[in-house]
Simulated assay, not measured.
Amino acid sequence: MFGHLVCALISFIIGTLLLPIIKQQFNPPPSVVQTITPHMTAPAAKFPTESPIALVLQNHRFNPSNFTVPAGKRFRIQLTSHDPSVDEFESYDMKFEKIVTPNTTITVYAGPMHPGTYSFFDDYHPEDAKGTVTVETGDQDNVR
């Protein structure tokens, strides 16, 4: 009997106390982000000012599945998931991984990168959801 009480108490603590705290740490409410953001300072050169590359994840496929960026510049990828399941947007080459829940949008930063082709994928569906980023030098106006 004592064991059942301990299990019930642990379930209660996890479900009502710890789970909301964990969710808040990984996805803070806008009011927290707005409160913190004005006080944060960072060199402007580290964050891209151009519009983000917009990706959509639907039916475990990225659209577009490949895009081009200029060499030597930091860039932003904004991913919107229309998958019914949780996905993990990841790239070993560009050194990011981020969980994306259904019907949400996340942003990741990458670069600056040397010319070449770099891969990204959904770690939960790697055979279906994969893509590449081509990093090129040259005419910066034609890159995207």
Rank of each mutant, 00 (worst) to 15 (best):
residue 3 G to F: 11
residue 4 H to G: 13
residue 5 L to E: 10
residue 7 C to T: 14
residue 7 C to E: 11
residue 8 A to E: 08
residue 10 I to E: 01
residue 10 I to Y: 10
residue 10 I to T: 12
residue 11 S to Y: 00
residue 13 I to E: 00
residue 13 I to M: 03
residue 15 G to P: 03
residue 15 G to V: 12
residue 18 L to Y: 07
residue 18 L to M: 07
residue 20 P to I: 04
residue 20 P to R: 01
residue 21 I to Q: 11
residue 22 I to R: 08
residue 23 K to Y: 13
residue 25 Q to D: 14
residue 25 Q to V: 15
residue 25 Q to A: 15
residue 30 P to R: 01
residue 30 P to Y: 07
residue 30 P to G: 07
residue 31 S to Q: 14
residue 31 S to N: 12
residue 31 S to W: 00
residue 31 S to H: 14
residue 31 S to I: 13
residue 33 V to I: 12
residue 34 Q to I: 12
residue 34 Q to Y: 07
residue 34 Q to L: 11
residue 35 T to E: 14
residue 35 T to F: 15
residue 36 I to L: 15
residue 37 T to C: 10
residue 37 T to F: 01
residue 39 H to T: 14
residue 40 M to S: 11
residue 41 T to L: 07
residue 42 A to C: 09
residue 43 P to E: 04
residue 43 P to Q: 05
residue 43 P to Y: 02
residue 43 P to A: 06
residue 43 P to F: 06
residue 47 F to M: 05
residue 47 F to N: 07
residue 48 P to M: 01
residue 49 T to F: 04
residue 51 S to R: 14
residue 53 I to F: 10
residue 54 A to G: 00
residue 55 L to P: 11
residue 55 L to N: 03
residue 56 V to Q: 13
residue 57 L to P: 05
residue 58 Q to W: 06
residue 59 N to Y: 01
residue 61 R to F: 09
residue 62 F to G: 03
residue 63 N to Y: 11
residue 65 S to F: 03
residue 65 S to I: 09
residue 69 V to M: 06
residue 70 P to L: 13
residue 71 A to L: 12
residue 73 K to F: 00
residue 74 R to Q: 04
residue 77 I to E: 00
residue 77 I to W: 01
residue 77 I to R: 00
residue 78 Q to W: 06
residue 79 L to M: 08
residue 80 T to I: 14
residue 80 T to D: 02
residue 80 T to V: 13
residue 81 S to L: 14
residue 82 H to Y: 12
residue 83 D to F: 06
residue 83 D to I: 08
residue 85 S to K: 08
residue 86 V to R: 02
residue 86 V to M: 11
residue 87 D to E: 10
residue 88 E to N: 08
residue 89 F to D: 03
residue 90 E to K: 10
residue 90 E to R: 07
residue 91 S to G: 08
residue 92 Y to M: 14
residue 93 D to T: 06
residue 93 D to Y: 08
residue 93 D to K: 07
residue 94 M to I: 08
residue 96 F to I: 05
residue 96 F to C: 09
residue 96 F to N: 06
residue 100 V to L: 09
residue 100 V to P: 02
residue 101 T to M: 13
residue 103 N to L: 07
residue 103 N to A: 02
residue 105 T to I: 11
residue 105 T to Q: 07
residue 106 I to L: 05
residue 107 T to D: 12
residue 107 T to L: 01
residue 108 V to L: 00
residue 109 Y to W: 02
residue 110 A to S: 06
residue 112 P to Y: 01
residue 113 M to G: 01
residue 114 H to G: 04
residue 116 G to Y: 08
residue 116 G to T: 09
residue 117 T to R: 14
residue 117 T to H: 02
residue 118 Y to W: 10
residue 118 Y to N: 03
residue 122 D to F: 09
residue 122 D to I: 09
residue 126 P to E: 02
residue 128 D to H: 08
residue 129 A to G: 04
residue 130 K to Y: 07
residue 131 G to R: 04
residue 131 G to S: 06
residue 132 T to C: 05
residue 132 T to V: 11
residue 132 T to R: 04
residue 133 V to L: 09
residue 136 E to Q: 15
residue 137 T to C: 04
residue 137 T to F: 04
residue 137 T to I: 15
residue 138 G to C: 08
residue 139 D to L: 12
residue 140 Q to A: 14
residue 140 Q to H: 11
residue 140 Q to S: 15
residue 141 D to N: 07
residue 141 D to S: 10
residue 142 N to A: 15
residue 142 N to D: 15
residue 143 V to G: 00
residue 144 R to D: 14
residue 144 R to T: 14
